[in-house]
Simulated assay, not measured.
Amino acid sequence: MTDTNPAEEARALIACLDLTDLNDGSSEADVDALIERAQTPHGNVAAICIWPRFVAHAKARLPAGMKLATVVNFPDGGEDIEAVIAEAKQAIADGTDEIDYVIAYRRIDGDPGYAARQVEKLREAIGGVTLKAILETGELHDPALIEVAAVSALHGGADFLKTSTGRTQTSATLPAARILLRSILQDESGRALGFKPSGGIRSFEDARAYRDLADEVMGKGWATPETFRIGASGVLADLLAVADGKRAPGERPAGTGSAY
């Protein structure tokens, strides 16, 4: 978005944010606070992402137009697909719009078809609900395995490719993001697909870098809330600071020890 100013860019990034609270000790009060934060002076975020046990509570409080996302098989990426399906179906009954599913990423090396079949089973079980496949790219280490995971998830019917849970030593990285985006670009299914970097995105500069990469690979203007989400809990404050004109790009964000 070279033709826009930083405040406009920050507002556009807020609109692509999946504002997240997946803390182990999260409560209904925390979810209420998340919903309040999600309604900013510069527009609402795209979605909130919370634990399944809070979906019904949040659904009754969510403003019109904001999506509700939850996680299943999170964060371990286990292999009990029937348990995952049951959890997802309950979340859908409670009102979720989107399911973020951690694939069985440990099986990618040696048995990538397994992960694809698991995604396909979940896809069939949840119907048209948006399915984001979390690949845990930081644990795959080899770029070739990241590509295999991406293609496997897409073949299984995932609507979005998501980098990571944010619970591992390495979360989203730009090289991994490029692999996921290229896999989306090369997909021949004809389905509308999206991309979600998640984990370690803490500043306006971080978020903009992923947005710019998405537009570079997919074409300028591709990264909209329908195709591009940012999974983060802490970046909103910095996006608001830039949108308010309180911080210029390149300055140190408040509360950090580096330029980014």
Rank of each mutant, 00 (worst) to 15 (best):
D30Q: 02
I146G: 09
G65E: 02
A29N: 10
S26P: 04
T4M: 14
S164H: 10
R211L: 14
L174Q: 03
D94S: 06
I48L: 10
A115Y: 12
Q186G: 14
R211V: 12
R191V: 04
S233H: 02
I81K: 06
E98M: 06
E28V: 01
R211D: 13
A237M: 05
R61M: 06
L19H: 07
V242R: 08
N73P: 09
F160P: 00
V129A: 11
A149Q: 04
V84F: 10
A149T: 04
T165C: 07
Y105M: 01
G245K: 03
G157M: 04
A149H: 08
G156I: 08
T224N: 07
L34D: 00
G166Y: 11
A207R: 01
K132A: 06
Q186R: 14
D212N: 13
G78F: 14
G190F: 11
A232M: 08
G110F: 12
E226P: 10
L22Y: 00
T163F: 15
T165M: 06
A91S: 13
K59R: 15
E136F: 10
N44H: 11
S164G: 11
L181E: 00
A10Q: 05
I179W: 02
Q90T: 07
C49W: 06
P143W: 11
A91T: 01
N23C: 08
V235T: 04
P253Q: 07
E205R: 15
D109T: 14
G65T: 02
A150N: 07
A116M: 13
A241K: 09
A223G: 02
V242D: 12
E87C: 12
E28F: 01
A86Q: 06
A91V: 03
S233M: 02
G77R: 08
H141P: 02
P225F: 11
T227K: 14
L17K: 00
G127V: 11
I230E: 02
H57Y: 05
Y101N: 00
A207Y: 03
M1C: 12
L145P: 09
L122R: 05
R211Q: 15
R123W: 09
V235Y: 00
F228W: 13
G127I: 10
